[in-house]
Simulated assay, not measured.
Amino acid sequence: MISDTQAWEAVQRKDRAFDGAFVTGVHSTGIYCRPSCPARMPHRKNVRFYATSADAEAAGLRACKRCSPNTQSAEEACVLAAIAAIRADGAKTLDQLSELTGYSPTHFQRLFKRTVGLSPSAFARALREERVREALEGGASVTDALYEAGYSAPSRFYSDTKGKLGMQASDWRDGGKGRTIYWSVVPTSLGEMLVAATEKGVCCLSFNEGEDALHRRFPKAELVAGGEEFRALFDQVVVVVEEPSLDSSHIPLDVKGTAFQQRCWEALRKIPAGETRSYGEQAAMLGNPKASRAVGSANGANNIAVLIPCHRVVPASGGVGGYAYGPEIKAELLKREGADQKELF
């Protein structure tokens, strides 16, 4: 659950991105609504916020007939129908999707992007990329994976993913085979830290782990201990870990993840130091407030602690929540960034 202040600001904006993240209970009328409900703005003193429709109904409220917060809206149904069509048949033109849903192409483009966070064409590309990676990780050949995912030629895949991934398609299939990863375990005030990098950037940062953990992540890569030529990069990483409120955007990363995971990690990097978000709020940043569970899984797959700051996501119910390297390290990182301790403990 986001804070009452954030929820009220979303209601004032009639922000569709928060639909599904909470419902607005208007106790003077006895109804509850979506944040984006087009009805007249209620007085703040009459409003309470609830995590789910069930919670609002348990408080004696009934669903608004105008925005139907407990059912799927016509717009949501159209977007889901378009997603199903893209998944079933591959890329479709905007005109085809418009005809399918009954909206004009321009209106549907805005509706789809507002709901999903991507345009229909970008969503189709992301879906193809994810299918390629899943096939490669399952052992398929690069060529077979590309064509089965709907690419007309390998060059289209490399064009679509240029600048997004450090690893090429064959690296996904082969667990890093042919790549060299330089690593070191360095002391920090938070404990021993494993930091590893390829020639493209940092690919792993974790606490209280060693070479075995790195080998599990990249089973076929060549692991080289020491990496003196990477010492300056490793030193930059240590500086940021010791003072995580510092800007780390200058440190290059070489990440491995699905299209959805990378969108989640990009969202994490947009959370300012000293601030926190709930999983629902992070999902809302991606344009899909109901995807909090998927967001949690994506955050858990993050191999690069601190630089991709999953420690800035905390439970809506309070406290710092879980962390791969222990809640104590997470709490200390948040403390160093100046996060509001009253809200966390």
Results as ranks from 00 to 15, higher is better:
T29R: 12
D340P: 15
K335S: 10
S121Y: 04
R269H: 05
A21F: 00
E134W: 06
C78T: 11
S36I: 03
R114I: 00
V306W: 03
G175Q: 07
R179M: 10
P187C: 02
E343R: 15
A10D: 14
M41E: 10
K220G: 04
D4T: 09
N70K: 15
S28L: 04
R269N: 11
K164G: 00
V47H: 11
G176M: 00
L127E: 13
R87M: 09
D19K: 08
G25Y: 08
F207N: 06
G102H: 07
C204M: 13
L100D: 04
R312P: 07
R16A: 14
S152R: 12
L80R: 15
C310H: 05
S249E: 11
E130V: 07
F218M: 02
D254I: 00
P154S: 13
E242P: 07
D212S: 04
I251A: 05
R87A: 11
V202W: 07
C204V: 12
L214F: 03
N208D: 09
P42V: 08
V239Y: 02
W265G: 09
V295L: 12
A10E: 09
P252G: 01
G300T: 07
C37Q: 02
F18Y: 15
H27D: 07
A63Y: 06
I308F: 06
S28D: 14
C204Y: 12
A153G: 08
G90S: 09
E211K: 13
L165N: 11
A339Q: 04
G90D: 05
L136Y: 03
S248W: 05
A82G: 09
G318E: 05
L223T: 08
R128T: 01
S28E: 10
Y279N: 04
Y182G: 02
L136T: 02
A339V: 09
H27E: 13
P252K: 02
I181S: 01
E9I: 04
D55W: 12
A221H: 06
A135Q: 09
L61C: 08
G191Q: 07
H250V: 06
A126E: 13
H43Y: 08
P272V: 07
K14H: 10
G139A: 11
D144T: 13
H215R: 15
G326I: 01
V186P: 02
T52R: 15
V295G: 05
A267L: 09
G300E: 15
R156V: 13
T71H: 14
D144I: 04
E130H: 13
C310D: 12
A232L: 00
L127W: 05
